[in-house]
């Protein structure tokens, strides 16, 4: 077993009744790495994370998390993992300090008072320690949640869409903090569907419909997709998009601000297909596909086979 892997699981599977929520997902994350889990809503990201921290019993799969068996030793894993839920899940009728104190008691921390004070100071919450959690804005709530997840000095943080409903400034501060902590050796597994956040991760795993579709660094994921993308600018782009989508060689045509990104698997077929449209008033330009192009591509691809390991 590789000592450097914080997470190393294979074949993780979870069924809810007849629904296959997570289908044989393999994932390994190195210690100190920030790994992003991407996928559309309902793709199985949350279920996968919950299996890792022992909130859900897996129906299949094996492997280790922080050196403990992921199926049998969930109690031991819970002690060393911080899990931040998708929705703010601390007690709104408790103050910041009371929330942190409660969490510290739950982990039976020695020097509880000091742990709470340190945690308040590290995340800049000291000035608001007596404010009720329910009265905080989104950014502060998220900071409290992060502080609470970190109070027991976990080795792995599982964050489920941590920045939903948080303003851009607070989001950037949050990511600075994450990279700072990763530099100290903490491992992160972060579910998100923001592209800019995905690009801040060391490595990515893309899940859709419970299947792992792609993994690797951001550049590797883009490369694996073998996508050719053209950017079109000009008038009446929605109408143009409609026409282009009817062409078999065009896998997707998606609006990006004032431009339309037209992508396909086969560069030559795509170039032939778009030839009749390459005339004024539209300007066409071949571009490097971005993560978002790949994201949409993977999402819209019907029943894709799992990628080679």
């Amino acid at each position: 077993m590789d000592e450097q892997l914080a997470i190393d699981v294979r074949g993780m599977t979870k069924r809810f009744g007849g629904l296959l929520a997570v289908n044989h997902v393999d994932l390994s994350v190195r210690a100190g790495e920030v790994c992003g889990v991407l996928g559309p809503n309902g793709s199985g990201k949350t279920t996968f994370i919950r299996m890792l921290c022992g909130l859900l019993r897996a129906d299949g799969g094996s492997g280790q998390c922080l050196g403990h068996d992921v199926i049998r030793e969930s109690e031991a894993i819970k002690r060393q993992v911080g899990y931040m839920t998708q929705r703010f899940s601390f007690w709104e009728d408790l103050t910041i300090a009371e929330n942190l104190d409660f969490v510290a008691r739950m982990y039976a921390l020695e020097n509880r008072r000091r742990a709470v004070t340190e945690s308040l100071e590290r995340l800049g919450l000291a000035g608001r320690r007596n404010q009720l959690a329910g009265q905080l804005s989104g950014g502060w709530k998220q900071r409290l949640a992060l502080a609470a997840c970190l109070i027991h000095h976990p080795r792995l943080l599982l964050l489920d869409e941590p920045t939903a409903g948080v303003d851009p400034k607070a989001r950037r501060d949050f990511w600075e903090e994450i990279h700072h902590l990763a530099g100290e050796g903490l491992t992160f597994l972060i579910a998100t569907h923001y592209m800019d956040e995905a690009e801040r991760c060391h490595r990515l795993a893309f899940i859709s419909g419970g299947n792992l579709l792609a993994r690797g660094t951001s550049a590797e994921v883009v490369e694996q997709a073998h996508l050719t993308t053209w950017s079109v600018s000009g008038p009446d782009l929605p109408e143009l998009g409609e026409q282009l989508r009817r062409l078999p060689a065009v896998r997707q045509a998606a609006s990006f601000g004032a431009t339309l990104h037209v992508s396909g698997d086969d560069p030559r077929a795509l170039e032939q297909a778009i030839a009749p449209f390459r005339q004024p008033p539209h300007q066409w330009r071949l571009i490097e596909p971005g993560l978002e192009d790949v994201f949409i591509h993977l999402m819209e691809r019907p029943a894709a086979p799992p990628p080679p390991a």
Partner: peptide, 13 residues
Amino acid sequence: ESGTMENLLSMPT
């Protein structure tokens, strides 16, 4: 309903 139960159960309780 408020999601705090999930939070509680993710802790070693």
